[in-house]
Simulated assay, not measured.
Amino acid sequence: MGAYILGISDDSTRAARKEGDPDGKTVQVPAELSYEEWYNEYVKGSTKYKLQKVMKDKKISGKLIMGPKQLNLDNYTFDDEHINKERDHKVTKEEAVSFMKNAKFALSR
């Protein structure tokens, strides 16, 4: 979860961290922002929070990984029989590669 820090700086802002920020960087938010407002905007409003809620609602297990590292797809093979005929995903190899290269999150089980 993000962090809400109570101290106010000289320029009427306070330090806080956004939920799901892979770098854990601190950002400055308006000093008048209440904890509830901060939580709603920076935590509940985060992509990670929304994905975790969908996972919980749909009973999807696994660890959510935001900004997964890129895979080396040079030796990647595409099993059309399994992916499309057995599982009916209706995806081409090019689409599958694009999905993996552009993934914003992943699930680890």
Rank of each mutant, 00 (worst) to 15 (best):
T47Q: 07
Y35Q: 08
K25L: 06
G45R: 02
A31S: 13
Y39S: 09
N40P: 05
E32I: 11
K56A: 15
Y42D: 01
Q52M: 15
Y42I: 10
E41G: 07
A31F: 05
N40W: 05
V43N: 04
K44G: 00
S34P: 03
Q52V: 11
Y49T: 09
Q28C: 09
L33D: 03
K53A: 15
K44F: 03
Y42Q: 03
W38H: 06
Y35G: 01
Y42T: 07
K56N: 14
E41I: 15
S46W: 00
K50A: 03
L51E: 02
T26G: 06
E37C: 13
N40F: 13
K50E: 00
S34F: 08
K53Y: 12
E41N: 14
V29W: 02
E41Y: 10
Q28T: 07
D57A: 13
T26R: 09
Y49E: 02
K53C: 14
Q52C: 10
V43M: 01
K25M: 07
T47I: 07
E32Q: 13
A31M: 09
W38L: 05
Q52R: 12
L33T: 15
K50N: 02
Q52H: 10
E41V: 11
L33S: 12
E36A: 12
V43W: 00
E41W: 08
K48V: 00
V54D: 08
E32G: 11
K53S: 13
K50R: 15
Y39D: 05
T26P: 03
E37A: 15
Y35H: 05
V29Y: 01
V27G: 04
T26Q: 09
W38N: 03
S34I: 13
V27F: 05
Y39N: 11
D57G: 09
K56Q: 14
E36D: 13
K25H: 07
E36F: 07
V29S: 05
W38I: 13
S34R: 10
T26K: 08
